[in-house]
């Protein structure tokens, strides 16, 4: 099949960037979107041009590395599918695909389709865990956890941290991502002791990063390749309100968002 790809090319964060149009005449409908870019890149290199930089690793939809907008939709038209598993048979012969990176202030551009998602790591670092050091654990069956509870925790824990929720949100909010971790751990008995502290810490960091606010639009859950339910945002809000009622955020330590790469390598 034949496709026209309009791809965002940007050399570096400070470069202005622009769309460049590429025509592909021989796309196999069985190949994935990323394999289609591989084929394009091979031809670009052979022509002496720089290939399109894009993030990818496992190509099985689980590592969360890949992701970009296709015709304005995060990860493209298929529900619950990352671009690495999106096969070209879902497009029509002769179609034009506009491909651009996640656009969000909290995800600074790096190059072409690659963005900086370290804000997500900082949100997890500010409370997205159970503080249990190696060796502290009791027997695995000490806490009996009903199957329904465990399944609900697993639904929230399935988040792959790709950033599609932020890219899809008109406000560029990271509420679904943050809520997913707060819900995963808060549902389980192991996460209960730190439920308040976790909500205060993670929400404080979320607010420190240049993400927008959540206005319950729901684009995030529609774009989510793991179909994280919108309810996790309510869980986050409930946990946060309850926690702040009990205690103010004075003791919460947030970290300053870092956008420079060079500095971070030389602490």
């Amino acid at each position: 099949m034949k496709l026209t790809l309009k791809i965002w090319r940007q050399k570096s964060r400070n470069d202005k960037g622009q769309f460049v149009t590429y025509t592909m005449n021989d796309v196999n409908p069985e190949m994935s979107m990323l394999e289609c870019l591989d084929v394009l890149n091979e031809t670009l290199i052979e022509k002496g041009e720089e290939p399109v930089a894009f993030e990818h690793d496992c190509r099985e939809g689980i590592c969360g590395s890949c992701g970009f907008m296709i015709n304005g939709v995060a990860h493209g038209p298929e529900r619950a599918t990352t671009v690495c598993q999106l096969t070209m048979r879902h497009f029509k012969d002769g179609q034009e695909l506009v491909i651009e990176p996640w656009r969000a202030k909290a995800f600074p551009q790096i190059k072409d389709l690659v963005v900086d998602r370290r804000a997500f790591d900082r949100i997890i670092a500010s409370g997205g865990y159970v503080s249990i050091s190696t060796g502290n654990a009791t027997d695995g069956n000490t806490h009996l956890i009903g199957k329904d509870t465990s399944d609900r925790a697993m639904d929230a824990a399935a988040c792959i941290g790709c950033g599609a929720c932020v890219a899809a949100c008109p406000n560029a909010s990271a509420a679904l991502f943050t809520g997913a971790k707060i819900a995963h751990l808060g549902i389980l008995p192991q996460g209960k002791p730190e439920q308040d502290r976790r909500a205060r810490g993670m929400v404080a960091q979320l607010n420190t990063e240049p993400f927008g606010s959540c206005t319950n639009i729901g684009e995030c859950t529609g774009a989510c390749p793991k179909e994280i339910p919108l309810e996790v945002i309510s869980v986050m809000n409930r946990d946060y309100i309850r926690a702040s009622w009990k205690k103010r955020d004075d003791d919460v330590r947030t970290v300053r968002p870092v956008t420079d790469w060079s500095l971070s390598s030389k602490p």
Binding site: V130, A137, A157
Partner: peptide, 10 residues
């Protein structure tokens, strides 16, 4: 045991 304690939803 360690993974269960961390909240791994087995």
């Amino acid at each position: 045991d360690q993974c269960v304690a961390q909240g791994v939803p087995f």
